[in-house]
Design a protein around this nucleic acid. Structure first.
Lengths: 148, 148
DNA sequence: CTTGCAAATGCGACCAGTTGCAGTTGCCAT
DNA sequence: ATGGCAACTGCAACTGGTCGCATTTGCAAG
């Protein structure tokens, strides 16, 4: 089964229509080598179909996020990034000092999800987190790291 | 020491000026009974000082967040909420189904912060998280809860 | 008290994202 | 094949937030 078919089925199963625009948008997200921002995505899909309206892109992304197909992550500074949710979930650590973004394996949040479920009955969608802080190199560089 | 004095000292220590506008904005956030949105805050401070410009509010909130005085939390649907960071940190569980927002004690994220620090050297600012998912009542109501 | 400097403000322009509406179209039933 | 309905699109208006610039002002030094 091709990835396009999978996408179409997911939309149809959710009672939504499969339109050429939506397929173009979602397949572009799916095949992006890294995270995409909405403006970047708009620019890219309009290369293939110049008449595609930005509001359609935003609406499609919003629907896809609600369906759990795509993650929406606030990376700070007003940048919301989108990524296709594959089988592997991961998160990001963002350094406030140098701006470096590194990946964080999902296992770190697994125990949190388990605790929320076991103790509170809350099934958390821990799809994609951007965790802000200060990275090890910056802490070492600032010299105040000893105070932590 | 009054809370106003504390706020003034925090600003001054960070090399920033203590202006009447900023004091009004930050004290309004500090004394708000619940979270405030930027538009709501703008409306409230302009009741006291109608000439206060919205860009000043956004700038002040941004500076205060960078200083760790105020938390910025994306509550979904484009709503960013601000809250004064007191001694007790807490987080929110937001149900995608019914929209209910409940508080989550910080202890749930303490072990995550510890793991990030011990294993990766990353000092996380886990100031305020909005965790999306489905709450226990909604899961029970949907009947599909057994499949989890 | 005066001066100087850099942070802050207000204003208006700009940008990104949202929303309502009229028209279009996917998809299902007949 | 036809009809109906509701989801979707495109468009334009709107809202919220950002940014550059000129002016103002807090604050420290003399």
């Amino acid at each position: 089964m091709s990835c396009e078919t999978e996408t179409a089925i997911a939309l149809r199963d959710a009672g939504q229509k499969v339109t050429p625009q939506r397929m173009l948008i979602l397949c572009t997200v799916r095949h992006a080598r890294e995270h995409v921002t909405a403006p970047g995505l708009i620019e890219e899909v309009r290369r293939a179909y110049p008449f595609l309206d930005p509001s359609t892109v935003y609406r499609t992304l919003s629907s896809a996020a609600a369906l759990g197909l795509v993650s929406e992550t606030d990376m700070g500074a007003g940048d919301t990034e989108y990524e296709w949710i594959g089988k592997d979930r991961h998160h990001h650590l963002i350094c406030r000092s140098c701006g470096d973004v590194t990946s964080l394996d999902n296992s770190y949040l697994d125990s949190l999800a388990t605790a929320l479920y076991d103790e509170l009955g809350f099934r958390a969608d821990l799809g994609h987190f951007a965790i802000f802080g200060v990275c090890a190199p910056c802490r070492a560089r600032s010299g105040a790291a000893a105070g932590d």
